[in-house]
Deep mutational scan, measured.
Amino acid sequence: RTRTSFTAEQLYRLEMEFQRCQYVVGRERTELARQLNLSETQVKVWFQNRRTKQKK
């Protein structure tokens, strides 16, 4: 599997969503992935990694 390189715009949007809600599921995840031109899996994993980073 190749590592995803997020654009600055994608990271900004993901961070904004994370500040709003640390868990994104269902339709929200589908819509966010579509808007950012990413897969739902990429969005899901980004949120998982971001929550892990916050715990440290």
Rank of each mutant, 00 (worst) to 15 (best):
T7Y: 02
A8P: 11
E31G: 04
V24N: 07
R51C: 11
Q35P: 00
R13A: 14
C21V: 11
V45G: 09
R50V: 00
L14N: 03
Q35A: 13
R13C: 09
Q54T: 06
R34A: 15
K44E: 13
Q19E: 12
E17S: 06
V24D: 05
Q22N: 07
F47W: 02
R13L: 11
E28T: 07
Q35V: 07
R27L: 11
Q54L: 12
E31I: 05
R3K: 15
V43L: 09
E28F: 04
T30N: 10
E17V: 06
R3G: 15
Q35R: 12
V43C: 04
R50P: 00
Q42L: 09
E31W: 02
V43D: 02
E28K: 01
Q35S: 13
Y23I: 10
K55C: 11
L11M: 09
S5N: 15
V45K: 07
E28S: 06
K55H: 09
K56A: 06
V43T: 02
T30Q: 06
Q35L: 10
E40I: 03
R20F: 04
N49R: 07
W46L: 02
Y12H: 10
F18P: 00
R20S: 12
Q19T: 11
T4E: 15
Q22K: 10
V45C: 13
V43M: 01
L36A: 03
V24H: 06
E40W: 02
K53D: 15
W46E: 01
Y23L: 13
L11E: 15
T30W: 10
N37W: 03
W46K: 00
V24Y: 04
S39M: 03
E9M: 07
L14G: 01
N37Q: 13
T7H: 05
Y23D: 09
S39V: 04
A8F: 04
S5C: 08
R34Q: 05
A8H: 01
A33W: 04
V25W: 03
G26H: 05
T52L: 09
R13S: 11
E28N: 04
N49E: 15
K44Q: 10
E9G: 05
Y12S: 13
N49I: 11
V24F: 05
E15L: 04
Y23M: 15
N37D: 11
K56S: 14
T7R: 04
R1I: 13
L14P: 00
L38Y: 00
R34K: 08
F47M: 08
K44R: 08
L14T: 01
L38D: 01
L36F: 02
E17N: 04
L36I: 13
R34W: 04
K56L: 08
R13N: 07
L36W: 02
K53Q: 14
W46S: 03
T2S: 11
V25S: 11
Y12P: 00
E9Y: 05
V25G: 12
K53R: 11
Y23R: 10
N49H: 05
Q54N: 08
